[in-house]
C-alpha cells in the first residue's frame, strides 16, 4: 500500500450566499512537495486555506490529511495534527514578546506536554531558524514588515508541522528580502516538510514551486510545472484579461 498524500481535497466547495468562493477543488500534495497556488485577487486562495485549516467550514467536499478525514475539524485539531499555517494579514499576539508569541505554539501544539521553560528554549531555536534571534525580547509592533512575516512563519514552525500552508508570506517584501525567504522555504522542504505556497509574487512561485496550481473564480484552472503553467495563455488571460492574452499570443507567435 502506498502512503497517502499529505494533503488531499475532493470536491471542496464553499458558498457564501450565492457566491461559490471555492468550487469543486480536488487535488493532492505528496510528501515533500512545494506546491505553489496562484490566482488573481478574489480567486479563492485564502478561502481555500481557511477550508483546509478549519477556519471556514466547507459547504461540501472532503479534506484528507495523511489519508485521514479532517473535513470540518477545528483549527486546533489540525494544528495538533501538525498542519500549520500563516495568515495573509499577520496576526501576532501583541502584548507578548516575539519569543512568547512562538512559545504559545510550542505550548499548545503537538508536543504540548512541555514545560514553560522548555517551550521558551524551543521558541529560541525556531527564532534562530528564521533569523529573528535578535528580536526575541521585542514586541511584535516594533518589527519591520519583513520581520513581522518571519514571526508569522516562526509561529507556524513552532508547531513542528509536517504540512505548512503559507498565505502570501512574501507580500509587501522588497526583492532583497524575498530571496532569504525562498531559501528558508527550500530549507524547510529539505527537512521533509510538505509546503503549500499561496503567492502573488510570480518570481517567488517560479523559483520555489515543484508544481503550480492555478485557481480562478474558485475553480482549478490548471496545474503542472511552473514554467509551463505560467506561460499558459489561460493563466495569462485570468490574470491580465483576454485582450492582453491575445496580444501576448500574437507577439510570441510572430
Amino acid at each position: 500500500m502506498s502512503t497517502p498524500p499529505v494533503l488531499e481535497t475532493r470536491g471542496l466547495t464553499r458558498r457564501f450566499g450565492g457566491l461559490e468562493a471555492v468550487a469543486d477543488v480536488s487535488f493532492s500534495v505528496p510528501q515533500g512537495e512545494i506546491l505553489g497556488v496562484i490566482g488573481p485577487n478574489g480567486a479563492g486562495k485564502s478561502t481555500f486555506i481557511n477550508l483546509v485549516t478549519g477556519h471556514v467550514k466547507p459547504s461540501s467536499g472532503t479534506v484528507l490529511v495523511h489519508g485521514k478525514d479532517m473535513t470540518g475539524a477545528k483549527p486546533w485539531t489540525l494544528a495538533q495534527a501538525r498542519v500549520a499555517r500563516t495568515f495573509q494579514i499577520v496576526k501576532p499576539f501583541r502584548g507578548m514578546t516575539v519569543r512568547e508569541n512562538v512559545a504559545v505554539g510550542v505550548l499548545y501544539g503537538p508536543n504540548h506536554a512541555v514545560t514553560m521553560a522548555r517551550a521558551l528554549v524551543r521558541a529560541d531555536e525556531v527564532l534562530d531558524d528564521v533569523g529573528l534571534e535578535g528580536a526575541r525580547d521585542r514586541g511584535p509592533a516594533e518589527l519591520s514588515t519583513a520581520d513581522a512575516r518571519r514571526l508569522e512563519l516562526a509561529k507556524a514552525l513552532a508547531l513542528d508541522p509536517e504540512l505548512l500552508l503559507l498565505d502570501e508570506v512574501m507580500a509587501g517584501l522588497r526583492d532583497n528580502e524575498i530571496q532569504p525567504g525562498l531559501d528558508l522555504i527550500r530549507r524547510l522542504r529539505d527537512r521533509g516538510l510538505t509546503i503549500l505556497v499561496v503567492e502573488h509574487v510570480m518570481k517567488a512561485i517560479r523559483e520555489v514551486s515543484d508544481r503550480v496550481l492555478v485557481i480562478h473564480q474558485g475553480r482549478v484552472l490548471t496545474s503542472g510545472e511552473p514554467d509551463e503553467v505560467l506561460s499558459d495563455p489561460r493563466v495569462i488571460e485570468a490574470y491580465l484579461g483576454k485582450r492582453y492574452a491575445e496580444r501576448h499570443e500574437g507577439e510570441s507567435g510572430a
Binding site: A79, Y108, P110
Partner: peptide, 9 residues
C-alpha cells in the same frame, strides 16, 4: 483565529 491555528482549543 490565530490562537486556534496555534493549537489552542
Amino acid at each position: 483565529d490565530a490562537a486556534g491555528a496555534m493549537g489552542i482549543n
